[in-house]
């Protein structure tokens, strides 16, 4: 294992994050605060509690997930796309680092940033709504698993994309809709039966449901299923990343 190589990549990515702290931390915190103000306080005050949980508090796990998914993908995809775009990826490819070490550096850094961001937003939420965390260990586990999974997914997008438009397309056209329709702001129990069935094909439902369970002990689907689906998605992304390095897809000509 070339740990110093992993650390070099990890450190480089974290430094990039610190350089753009305003954009990477402050802007998600502001936008999440706006959600709390608008949905939690303004609109939420007219909505009954859901399953005994105040509406403002109910949306906290969903909002954290929304930030976690978009930021994991954005960080990891940009992290590997940019060196490809400006050509500095030559150095990574010609260094004595294994594919696993490269992924560990990039995805590890992206996931770290997302988890930190998730915790910051959780703390921010504490200012707006009464919070309770029923299962802190599971909460952290879901947080980390999701961050890693979607950072891997973002890494794949960063390798697949050959222009900036593609880099934006998946988060914008797929992830954001899936998150909004995945029960960030409602329990899928309030949907008509047909749409409830359709929603079950949305993987984000399982992430949000499991995550919300770790807060309030309420879930749309069983916790085991949530954990299982997260693990499956993680495995799929890990397999695809392995294939990328095996074949050299878009990295080596």
């Amino acid at each position: 294992m070339n740990w110093r190589g992993v650390l070099a990549i990890y450190g480089f990515e974290m430094a990039r994050w610190r350089r753009t702290l305003m954009q990477s931390v402050v802007s998600p915190v502001i936008s999440t605060s706006l959600y709390f103000v608008v949905f939690g306080s303004a609109i939420g005050s007219r909505i009954d509690s859901i399953d005994g949980v105040n509406y403002g508090a109910f949306i906290v796990p969903g909002l954290i997930m929304l930030t976690l998914l978009t930021n994991s993908i954005a960080n990891a995809s940009f992290g590997i796309y940019f060196p490809r775009f400006i050509g500095t990826v030559y150095e990574i490819l010609s260094a004595p680092v294994s594919p696993f070490e490269i992924v560990l550096g990039y995805v590890g850094a992206a996931a770290t940033k997302s988890v930190i961001l998730g915790l910051i937003i959780l703390a921010t939420a504490g200012f707006f709504v009464p919070l309770q965390i029923a299962h802190p260990f599971w909460m952290l586990l879901f947080l980390v698993l999701t961050a890693v999974t979607f950072s891997l997914f973002g890494f794949l997008i960063g390798i697949w994309a050959d222009n900036f438009e593609k880099l934006q397309a998946i988060p914008l056209l797929v992830i954001t809709p899936l998150t909004f329709l995945g029960g960030s702001f409602y329990s899928i129990g309030v949907l008509p039966p047909f749409w409830r069935k359709v929603t079950l094909f949305n993987p984000v439902v399982y992430l949000i449901s499991g995550f919300r369970w770790s807060f309030y002990n309420i879930a749309d689907v069983s916790v085991a299923l949530s954990l299982g689906m997260t693990a499956v998605f993680l495995a799929i992304c890990a397999f695809l990343v392995w294939r990328v390095f095996k074949t050299g897809y878009r990295l080596k000509t």
């Binding site: 070339n2 110093r4 190589g5 990039r16 260094a95």
Partner: peptide, 19 residues
């Protein structure tokens, strides 16, 4: 080159990358 890095950091990065 990594446009936004300093000369020292980018060269140190290369050394670390090689373990």
């Amino acid at each position: 080159t990594d446009t936004f890095e300093t000369v020292w950091n980018t060269v140190s990065f290369s050394r670390g990358l090689f373990g």
